[in-house]
Computed example of a mutant assay.
Amino acid sequence: MDGVSIAGRGAPASRPARLLARLRVLLAPLPWLAPALLLIGAVVLWPVVEMVRTSFLAISSSGATLGGAGTRNYKDLFDEPDLGAVLLRTLLWVVGIVVITTVLSLALGQLLNARFPGRRVVRWAVIVPWAASVLMTALIWRWMLDNDSGVVNRLLLDLGLVDEPVNWLAHPGQAMAWMMAVAVFVTLPFTSFVILAGLQSIPPEVYEAARVDGASGWTTYLRITLPLLRPALLIGTIINCINVFNNFPIIWSMTQGGPQHATDTSTTFTYKIAFFDQHVGESAAMAVVNFALVLFMVALYLRAARRSGATS
């Protein structure tokens, strides 16, 4: 009986001990993870919290907080007559650049993966637009498109393709097309090298087995290369979506979103609300909308990629 009572008293004591041991195991990596977690909290989470908090405040043009504003900043934002067109243009900007870049990068990645004389030089040449300053690249393209002294107009005039110089950046449609071309030019190297890394990770034995089975080159690419490239494409597309959505230097240095808001995306529109209109709270509300749009686009793409992976 004494043994039973001793065992009964010992059983409850062992459960807290097990929980404590499990807690020690879970917390063991914390000293190693703490610096990274603190850095993420300071650089990522805290600015997001401040951005959301600011969107509910009334702030003067000098930066002084005048008190709470409730949802007035969001109401003022959604009452902006140009907001709908800006959001639609942003969607076109992101989808157009990412799709064109991905398609071109698939071809360029295949080229860079092939064996030919001077391959190393070609790889270095491809990476130059990515290594160069985005702002300087955009300014160079702006100079090239100048209607008086730009080399684009000079070349077209010499070839007889235009009768007089064209002010390419003065027309919203033409300006958007040229800015998207510059964005593709800048984004292409990164995506190409991500795809190149994915191609080099595919085992050669897979292609040998396909050749033995008599698969054609096109069938091999569709049935083997593309499915095995899915992780690289996923990483490249997500990073490109975020980078292109937040791209500010190209638009600002080439057109400043003008004329009026005709070439604005949501990023430059946010900047104008803050520094031109002096509405800091409304600009913070627009920043929150931008943040939500990025998360939505990434989640949407991840879901589509997951479905594609499940059905393949």
Rank of each mutant, 00 (worst) to 15 (best):
P172F: 12
V151I: 15
L145F: 07
M180A: 10
D158L: 11
M180R: 06
L106R: 06
V152T: 10
R119T: 05
W168A: 06
A125W: 03
V103A: 05
R119Y: 05
W124H: 00
L169E: 11
V134Y: 07
P165L: 09
L157H: 06
R142A: 13
G118K: 14
V134F: 09
A132I: 08
N153T: 09
L108S: 02
S133T: 05
T137E: 08
A132F: 09
N147L: 01
L139G: 08
Q174R: 15
P129F: 05
V134G: 06
V121H: 01
V134P: 05
A181W: 02
L108F: 02
I140N: 09
A170T: 14
N113V: 07
L159I: 12
L157F: 10
V182T: 10
G173P: 11
P117N: 12
A138L: 11
A138W: 11
V103Y: 00
V121C: 03
A181M: 08
W168H: 09
N147V: 03
P165W: 06
V121Q: 04
A131G: 06
L111E: 02
L135P: 03
D158Y: 04
E164K: 14
V134L: 14
S133Q: 03
P172K: 13
L139N: 07
L169M: 14
A170C: 10
I127E: 03
A177T: 10
W141I: 08
R123M: 07
A114W: 14
N113C: 08
W143Y: 13
L159V: 13
A125R: 01
R120G: 05
M136V: 15
G118E: 14
P172D: 15
L135I: 08
H171C: 11
V126A: 04
V152A: 07
L108K: 02
D148P: 00
L111N: 06
V128C: 02
N167D: 14
W124G: 03
A181C: 09
D163C: 07
D163R: 13
L145T: 05
I140Y: 12
V162C: 10
L145N: 04
L139D: 09
L106Y: 01
A183S: 13
V184F: 03
R120E: 11
L161P: 13
L108G: 03
L139P: 11
G150Q: 04
L161F: 15
M180F: 00
V182W: 07
L139C: 09
